[in-house]
Design a protein around this nucleic acid. Sequence first.
DNA 1: ATAAAGGATAACGTAACGTGAGAGTCAATG
DNA 2: CATTGACTCTCACGTTACGTTATCCTTTAT
Lengths: 249, 249
Amino acid sequence: MVMKVKEVAALVGISVRTLHHYDEIGLLTPKEKSEAGYRFYSTEDLDTLQQVLFFRELGMPLKQIKEIISDPSFDRDEALILHKKMLMDKRDRLDKMISTIDKTVSYKKGEIVMTDKEKFEGFDFSKNPYEQEARERWGNDAVDASKMKLGNMSKEEQEKMSHEMTTIYKKLADQRTGSPDTKEAQAAIKEWYDFLNKNFSTYSLEAFKGLGQMYVADERFTKNIDNMGEGLAQFMCDAMGIYADNNKS
Amino acid sequence: MVMKVKEVAALVGISVRTLHHYDEIGLLTPKEKSEAGYRFYSTEDLDTLQQVLFFRELGMPLKQIKEIISDPSFDRDEALILHKKMLMDKRDRLDKMISTIDKTVSYKKGEIVMTDKEKFEGFDFSKNPYEQEARERWGNDAVDASKMKLGNMSKEEQEKMSHEMTTIYKKLADQRTGSPDTKEAQAAIKEWYDFLNKNFSTYSLEAFKGLGQMYVADERFTKNIDNMGEGLAQFMCDAMGIYADNNKS
DNA sequence: ATAAAGGATAACGTAACGTGAGAGTCAATG
DNA sequence: CATTGACTCTCACGTTACGTTATCCTTTAT
């Protein structure tokens, strides 16, 4: 199916001029043009447009977008994954801004004190996303020491623990295409249960189940767990529930 | 305290030129100027700047921002509330884009079909935010069902629960300037304990303490909790530990 | 066939800064 | 106390990503 400019514009919510512009600069040239010069956009063109808009949403200059997507080594799938991460980053920033507003309201009421720094949390545009891109892409596993706050552990212990956790998360993420009650999934979830009990506290099976439910009920948690894999939180919740039920004497 | 341009720029993550520009167009004129013409920004100026940046984040033209904030009938508090809603909208859009990416990945693999319309969900900029403003302002409380994943709860129950949670988080965030063993802090943490037990599972005091330790040990959690206030995760961890110890038989 | 609706190119306008250029200011240092 | 280096200022032109007419050509609906 082919679409004319206005249709496309209406579909994606951009202006006709924008499409013209993208054609002008060679960013998105429709495959077909009628004899009269009408632009006809194919489904393929729409896919490209989608890519362009993803990049644009992240504030990338059109010139750079053009370079990237016209590079023969450009990997669409990789780009999508990257985009997802970056969009999630942006969402985190929005979350911060929202909580900054909450704080500001309290601050105006005189309920709390607010440092100047706090007033601008979430606004920090100083570090551009493309710097981060590289770091994300080539994995910068340096652990930010400031983030490890469990005072009564040595750095090594903390790092080891963090690594152990990540390993289990990954194991679970790999399982999540299947059902949460397979042998493998349950083995992995047992590891998680053991890990928690070893490192934090003795969880009852009921408490363990409850923890799983929190993973999906509190979107703050869901979001972060799903960083390790879409739908992981839900999967873990299910698996944890099954595990608890099965092992209940 | 007064700050010079570069300090302000560094604090909020914008350029010096931007501050100059805002001065030029009369959007943010620092209250004081030194004899040599140096700009000195007061705390009040920073508050205004915060407002400006909130509006800007929502894509409002600077001209319009100027009109709004210089209007004597401009209600800062109302604006903050409005901003919050609009930012949450934006976040919803980001969520949609993220799920669009997920779908696109499946689509590329040939796992699912995707209509052209679906390819652009979350991208719809056609309706400008100011249209929505009106809708938001007079309350359109439609709940996004897709975000509430706890299947076995009604929408109302879910919303109520989410609200309850946020309330407790806020209460704790307000306490965090003090010590975690004050009466107020412990009362708030008891609310948290009761809430968890009511909604998820029976947590033993040990398990509760362990949960608290997870808050700071797992940076995925830390990050999100700290969204509600810097250092909140650590504070909750401490408070939860104290609560458990105090109430142990 | 005749208008209305939509498409095209062309070209200038605009918003929100970026990017020097050239010059003054200020605290610290030799 | 002169100098240096880090900041600051004010022009002023450049840039990006379109918006906005203006003028003309196609296509579709009646």
